[in-house]
């Protein structure tokens, strides 16, 4: 497993090992019986090095957001470990966990739902400072003004309410809130999907600038493969609760080993009619299976054009086929 091989290396910031997150499905009114589970994340292992961006891609419902939320202990993991700076977060509770949370923050997908409409921008950005007892009184105001300037907003906006801002500006407010506590690690959960095309580049550039400026480590969750390619150093591809392939950006996009990655890449269109005319698409049949009852063996075998008998019987091993290029496939 990845974690075991690299566990002692100093440059690893986050190390996720065999993480599982199953949500129970219950039935009954008075006495709730568990009748099944949504296996949103089902044995996922990866690590993130200090200062790098790990991209996490997959289709909706594949569990990529759940991975992020479980890492931050927003859900209680069913099994597995999440090491952050050497400490297993899944075993940490109360005040210790709260102190750890200062080091990791999240930027959410929907800038409309993730800001409290009754709080001013200044209060939204200042709240984490007060919770973590980092600043008091006038210092808070000053720090908020600094943060607003950092994300490219007018410091004077601190007295306004979220509804006065556009989607892109709100996303900047969300970024300022995440930056307030000077975290080492930020999970960006589809930070640009809800934004207009012309605004997306502004936010992507801002995230890159901040990474350089504050030496941040990102987990960048998105469904758009072109965006992930642009943002990430290494990329993991998820499918129905499992990571199918994980490699450096170059390897994953230029030499994908897993059939699912190959199909995903071929499905992305390129804004160029000449290139488009030459490309061949792999059109996958059928729909994404349900995580309640994932297919036996390899989860992708129901849609895979390379599937053979073993694929439906035995779960493929997670192996390192090339240095830093991990894949879970019998046929790779």
């Amino acid at each position: 497993m990845i974690g075991e091989r690299k566990a002692n290396t100093n440059d690893i910031l986050v190390d996720v090992r065999h993480l599982k997150m199953h949500f129970p499905i219950t039935s009954g009114i008075m006495i709730q019986r568990q009748i099944g589970a949504v296996k949103a994340v089902d044995d996922v292992s990866f690590f993130i090095r200090k200062g790098e961006t790990l991209g996490l891609v997959g289709e909706s419902g594949c569990g990529k957001t759940t991975v992020g939320r479980t890492m931050l202990q927003l859900y209680k993991a069913t099994a597995g470990e999440v090491f952050f700076e050497g400490v297993d977060l899944c075993k940490t509770k109360g005040e210790t966990l709260r102190a750890m949370r200062r080091r990791m923050q999240m930027i959410f997908q929907d800038p409309y739902a993730s800001l409290n409409p009754r709080m001013t921008v200044g209060d939204i950005i200042g709240e984490p400072l007060i919770i973590h007892k980092l600043k008091r009184g006038r210092e808070v105001t000053q720090r908020v003004a600094e943060l607003l300037a950092t994300v490219g907003l007018n410091p004077y906006f601190a007295n306004r309410y979220p509804h006065e801002f556009s989607g892109g500006q709100r996303q900047r407010i969300g970024i300022a809130r995440a930056l307030a506590v000077e975290p080492a690690f930020i999970i960006c959960d589809e930070p640009i999907s809800a934004l207009d095309v012309s605004i997306r580049a502004q936010v992507m550039n801002l995230l890159e600038e901040l990474q350089g400026q504050y030496d941040l480590t990102y987990l960048f969750i998105a469904h758009d493969l072109s965006v992930v390619r642009h943002m990430s150093d290494r990329v993991a591809v998820m499918y129905v609760g499992k990571i199918m392939e994980l490699a450096t950006r170059k390897d994953l996009y230029e030499d994908p080993l897993h059939p699912y990655t190959q199909a995903l890449l071929s499905a992305v269109s390129i804004p160029d009619p000449i290139v488009e005319a030459k490309r061949q698409r792999i059109i996958l049949a059928g729909d994404v299976p349900s995580p309640v009852n994932p297919p036996s063996g390899c989860r992708f075998h129901t849609r895979c054009w390379k599937a053979i008998d073993i694929c439906s019987q035995q779960e493929p091993e997670w192996r390192e086929l090339k240095p830093d290029h991990w894949v879970s496939c019998h046929r790779a």
Partner: peptide, 24 residues
């Protein structure tokens, strides 16, 4: 501006995106 502000799957190296400044 639109063409330059979206990352392409086939971009050769990591280029900085050129955003369209401001709002509609």
């Amino acid at each position: 501006g639109l063409l330059k502000s979206v990352p392409r799957l086939d971009e050769a190296r990591k280029e900085r995106l050129v955003p369209i400044d401001g709002l509609p």
